[in-house]
Computed example of a mutant assay.
Amino acid sequence: MAIASDRFTAKPGGTMEGVFVAVRASIPIAVIPNTGKPCAAVPGSRGIGKRMGFEIGAGWTSLSQRSHKEKTSFKLGAPGSA
């Protein structure tokens, strides 16, 4: 299932807040910078469910090939699962 959302708002300190929307779910999340990132392979941000308070995914920041603007790609999943 592909999900796209541009409804995230930048907050002080590099965090973003928005709502994850799927077919039957609408979950407020916060995307926070991973300040303890030891290497480039580690995600640059973490997604935290605001209601539940636990991690729901990770994000990587890259440069868009079309617009040349910074973008964050987000992958939903349980932390530590491979």
Score class of each variant (00 low, 15 high):
residue 1 M to K: 10
residue 2 A to L: 15
residue 2 A to D: 14
residue 4 A to L: 15
residue 6 D to T: 14
residue 7 R to I: 15
residue 8 F to H: 05
residue 9 T to M: 13
residue 10 A to M: 11
residue 12 P to R: 13
residue 12 P to M: 07
residue 13 G to F: 04
residue 16 M to L: 12
residue 16 M to R: 06
residue 17 E to R: 07
residue 18 G to W: 05
residue 18 G to F: 09
residue 19 V to R: 11
residue 20 F to R: 02
residue 20 F to C: 02
residue 21 V to W: 05
residue 21 V to A: 11
residue 21 V to G: 02
residue 21 V to L: 13
residue 22 A to T: 14
residue 23 V to I: 14
residue 24 R to I: 15
residue 24 R to G: 15
residue 25 A to W: 08
residue 26 S to D: 07
residue 27 I to H: 01
residue 27 I to V: 15
residue 28 P to S: 09
residue 29 I to V: 15
residue 29 I to D: 00
residue 30 A to D: 03
residue 35 T to P: 01
residue 37 K to I: 07
residue 39 C to T: 14
residue 39 C to P: 01
residue 39 C to Y: 12
residue 41 A to V: 10
residue 42 V to D: 03
residue 43 P to I: 01
residue 43 P to V: 01
residue 46 R to E: 05
residue 46 R to P: 00
residue 47 G to T: 04
residue 48 I to E: 01
residue 49 G to D: 08
residue 50 K to S: 11
residue 51 R to Q: 13
residue 51 R to K: 13
residue 52 M to F: 11
residue 54 F to P: 00
residue 54 F to M: 11
residue 54 F to Y: 12
residue 55 E to N: 09
residue 55 E to L: 11
residue 56 I to G: 02
residue 56 I to Y: 02
residue 58 A to P: 00
residue 58 A to S: 08
residue 61 T to R: 08
residue 61 T to N: 03
residue 62 S to N: 11
residue 63 L to V: 12
residue 67 S to V: 10
residue 68 H to N: 11
residue 68 H to K: 15
residue 68 H to F: 13
residue 69 K to G: 04
residue 72 T to H: 01
residue 73 S to W: 12
residue 73 S to G: 12
residue 74 F to Q: 00
residue 75 K to M: 10
residue 76 L to R: 04
residue 76 L to P: 00
residue 77 G to K: 01
residue 77 G to M: 07
residue 79 P to M: 13
residue 80 G to V: 07
residue 80 G to P: 01
residue 82 A to R: 06
residue 82 A to E: 06
residue 82 A to C: 06
